[in-house]
Design a protein around this nucleic acid. Structure first.
Lengths: 366, 366
DNA sequence: TTGTAAGCGTTATCAA
DNA sequence: TTGATAACGCTTACAA
């Protein structure tokens, strides 16, 4: 641990004409522009200018300011900066779940894309609750963000109102992880059509020759996108004349839920089924349970997941799954937001594609 | 989609004595306190007071203000609020990795603990880079946070300087996920002793009768905590007279890295080994590879992970692992920060315990 | 090239 | 119970 000089603070503020010694409502002890300026022998506006446009101050002055900044360990106060400049370089994003989730890559890509353009990402999670979404959205809007990114196209009336107000005030609003061509929503959508994915999942299992199809849905009632996939899966399977079982995974550990779902589906009365799951974790649980029970995969039991988590590739047979364009969504959202802000126009929506990855859990290899 | 009234904005600002019609540097179209106040027929300070202490305005006035707030869809500007009040209710936290990580529970618990006390969490990730930590820390400090939470006790000189300055200015600083009893660091530490965990991991494998021990470390050179566990593991195993192999997992998919590590360790020349891994994903990869190769687990190949990810429980045999107090760290950090801010004192550090969970991958059951 | 004055939207202080 | 005024720390606009 290196010792280091305590932060220097100018004792006397630069005398501002005949203003009485500042009544110091609170100092919080932090270094301000005035402190740096005093040390550099200039006024704060020169330091401020140096911070924004270094080339516009004379070289010797710049050198003194540089020293003063390093000496004091000055950190610019964002609140004051944003309030004064009127334009925030903050993008607020609202995601259902931060920890251990499918949204990780989206957030990462979004963050990178924004950072390279000089924007900061302010993140909050909704825990899949519409009510919480509204609360968090209100909190985020308090930061006066330059743009807003939300997940999905379903919101509470209050949240929708907030988004529409922001939109009306010229703040770009982007909805990610969903896309409906026919949707007349006012916000740009960047994502994919979940109903279409559900149909493709059914089609894949039907094409593999299965005639008994099950969907194991998410235990989260407000995961509208998973529900949409499930509903479309069920409808498509029924249309094709298959026997369809529509179930929901138990709450709690998703692997255990997948195991339990498989156990419930199979028994003396039923020995063959093709299962599509709301996510790969549930699917891995189902697949592991099927293997433990010595069912023949994929002939008797086929399992199809969603999300393309790294684990699925490791099982034997490996898990078939749908890979969502997680990273592309984040990249596209960053691009859309940045472009909209630069051109002062409404952001552009974009449809992205999922990829169905057929592996051993649904298809006999070779 | 319900139609809703466009946000109302008072056309004429309340006449502020003889100030000329505002020169309107920029309007950003957002609703301000003045707009709400004009609609309610009061001045902005009354609205501000209502927002902070509703009981201190007369009932009829309060009702009018309430209506005006709802009508306008007013959202309080955080920048102005924080700047004016001088005390930010923001806690800044710096975590190595947000997506898919062991820190998820810590962040979640921290967030919950702070939220119930009226604080907001501002999160940033370091991607395990000291350089990035310093950058991100500087950015976070720009928000003038009421407290700072960082991961670990290793920082760049610059970051340390920033933390010490904050500390000196009375801002509580907490280091999480590490704890050294002998450490004379100025910051409160909330976590556990990684060296001790490394020794316990070695002890567990030795107690199970193994005499050839391997450590598969993290590919992230700057994951100091994993390195500390590894170094202590190796030292303890050597002290006990065991043959020790100290390796590092390949970068990329951790499951694949675990598989590759096992493949490299075992061959014609060596048929028995007990492997400890930097994390459960690598350990699961190693365990799956051992099973695919028909090694006898745990007699010939034993595998011990770290992290207690849900997947480990699902394998057969299940993965032995160390469960870190992830949630407890987040809770304790929230408590420490809140207590420090309330009492205007330095935050208190705390040692928390890991639990070694012996399952079938290291111990013959029954 | 540098500085002065005003103001961003809110809150603390004090007065009415 | 309500309001006038002066900050908070910084940036914009304009002057020197």
């Amino acid at each position: 641990v290196q010792p280091h000089p305590a932060p220097r603070r100018a004792d006397a503020r630069p005398a501002t004409a005949d203003v009485p010694a500042r009544r110091s409502r609170r100092g919080h002890g932090r270094i301000t522009l005035d402190d740096v300026a005093a040390l550099a022998g200039v006024t704060k506006i020169t330091v401020s200018r140096f911070l924004r446009e270094p080339d516009r101050v004379a070289a010797p002055t710049a050198a003194r300011i540089r020293d003063a900044l390093a000496d004091t360990g000055y950190v610019r106060n964002k609140q004051a900066e944003l309030l004064a400049s009127g334009r925030s370089r903050i993008v607020a994003a609202l995601i259902p779940n931060l920890a251990h989730s499918i949204f990780g890559e989206t957030v990462h890509a979004l963050s990178e894309g924004l950072q390279t353009e000089g924007f900061e990402l302010l993140l909050a999670s909704t825990a899949y609750s519409l009510e919480r979404e509204e609360d968090q959205l209100r909190a985020l809007l308090g930061w006066a963000p330059a743009a807003v990114v939300v997940t999905g196209r379903r919101h509470s009336d209050g949240a929708r109102r907030l988004l529409l107000d922001a939109h009306a005030a010229g703040t770009p609003v982007v909805e990610v992880w969903d896309y409906r061509r026919d949707d007349a929503a006012p916000f740009a959508q960047i994502g994919f059509d979940h109903a279409k994915v559900g149909r493709e999942m059914a089609r894949h299992l039907l094409d593999a020759g299965h005639r008994v199809l099950a969907y194991v849905g998410s235990p989260i009632a407000t995961d509208f996108r998973a529900r949409e996939r499930g509903a479309a899966f069920v409808a498509a399977a029924r249309r094709a004349g298959a026997e369809v079982i529509d179930t929901t995974a138990a709450a709690g550990d998703p692997f255990d839920a997948g195991r339990a779902a498989l156990a419930a589906l199979l028994g003396p009365a039923r020995r063959r089924v093709a299962i599509a799951c709301a996510n790969d974790q549930v699917a891995c649980g189902a697949l592991l349970e099927a293997l433990d029970r010595h069912h023949v995969v994929p002939r008797d039991v086929a399992v199809l997941g969603f999300g393309d988590y790294p684990l699925g590739r490791q099982l034997r047979p490996a898990l078939s799954t749908v890979r969502p364009p997680s990273r592309a969504i984040g990249e596209a959202a960053a691009q859309a937001v940045v472009a909209a802000l630069k051109q002062d126009a409404a952001p552009q929506g974009r449809a992205l594609a999922c990829t169905l990855i057929a592996r051993g859990s649904t298809r006999t290899e070779g």
